[in-house]
Design a protein around this nucleic acid. Structure first.
Lengths: 215, 215
DNA sequence: GTAGTAATTATACACTTGCATAATTACGAA
DNA sequence: TTCGTAATTATGCAAGTGTATAATTACTAC
């Protein structure tokens, strides 16, 4: 009885690791990797610093896990919304662009994390692999959607041209994503997704904004 | 005589400050702000660490100066090429997009620096001011060029719409710039400027790629 | 030449960092 | 209940950090 006396509570390995990762990400987003010291992380996760070494072999290991967590979360958030659309490929494409350029995917926090990790991603092989996997996945999905939307519209597209279109659209989307997160005040609400849909539509030659015809 | 014995050489304040800034930027680009320690900077600039404090009141001061230097250099490099075009506004616009998406402006080093500084920019008032000034300058130039190009083509554009177009184009350009620097291998040479010109043209409704008519 | 002075080096200090190791504590099994 | 063990804390350390201060050194004015 009298739990107040307990100096700490035991948690499952999964919960603790997750709590440490969440604390790490919040600190990195706020102050960069430099601000995410073991002591600061431990404090934010309400544990003592020694515990970090109990769950992660090194701080580098924790940083890598945090990056993986962030990328996975963003990917999931992006495709969760787009996958819900079950009408036309064109609408699914528009939904994907929308989800990519709207919070929580497009947000200062996301971009701050991306920027903070960039250096390490370029140096650490494991982080680089995570980055490339995530990137390739998004690009492939985008390319498939573009292809399907064009086919839907009765257009024949060569694989080479399709690849070019996907590259261009991906660049525009990623770029607007970063831009929106780096300069949140530069855009009115809904302006960023609007620009994205407009640009992607202009590039592939389809009007993504027009409502589906009512039969 | 026998200058070999000299333990150091005196340089003008301007040269030394510049050398320290250049050393700082190269280190930040390679290893992030975290890797740019006073000792590493001093070593790369071939001086001892004490000298840094002689020219900059603090390390933060040096970082701020380095950021200013980087942004100014990028702006100059961007507009130097575009300003050389003296034919039509349309061609100047195309040249601006090109210069923005081509080395040395669009390069891994530039984007690495941008990403490394992002956190500090958000926190430090002086750096934020530098950032906003640079950004606003580019945007205004872009908006003017778009307006001139459209007028040239005989199109009337409301200020509101012009602002929207400039925002969209700016977002696409900045985005592609970051994308190209973050993933240099994802694009073939000349592919990025091509996508940029194509996208900007599609957004504002002008073909920027067509050659000027030969009389 | 020589003295003055600013540029540059040399040295040291207080503080933070990541990490290791030992000492506790909570919880499950018996 | 008690006992074992893994989770958690407590403490300490060596290396690296920015900065301050004093000691040199190169150039300049006279």
């Amino acid at each position: 009885m009298n739990d107040e006396r307990r100096k700490f509570k035991r948690e499952s390995a999964e919960q603790r690791k997750d709590a440490l990762i969440v604390a790490t990400l919040s600190l990195v987003a706020e102050m960069g990797v430099r601000g995410a010291t073991v002591r600061a992380i431990a404090e934010r996760a309400d544990v003592t610093q020694g515990l970090i070494r109990h769950y992660f072999s090194s701080k580098e290991d924790l940083i890598i896990a945090a990056y993986e967590h962030h990328m996975t979360t963003m990917t999931d958030q992006t495709f969760a919304l787009a996958a819900a659309v079950d009408s036309s490929a064109r609408d699914r494409l528009a939904a994907l662009v929308n989800a990519s350029l709207r919070p929580p995917v497009a947000a200062p926090r996301s971009v701050a994390l991306w920027a903070s990790f960039l250096n390490r991603v370029q140096q650490d092989a494991q982080m680089k692999a995570t980055h490339e996997r995530t990137y390739a996945y998004f690009r492939d999905q985008l390319q498939d959607l573009i292809g399907a939307a064009l086919e839907e519209a009765g257009q024949v597209t060569s694989p080479t041209r399709l690849r070019h279109l996907a590259t261009a659209c991906n660049g525009v989307i990623d770029g607007l994503w970063m831009e929106g997160g780096a300069l949140p005040d530069a855009f009115a609400p809904d302006e960023l997704p609007g620009i994205g849909v407009e640009s992607v539509g202009a590039i592939i030659g389809l009007d993504l904004e027009q409502k589906a015809e009512q039969p």
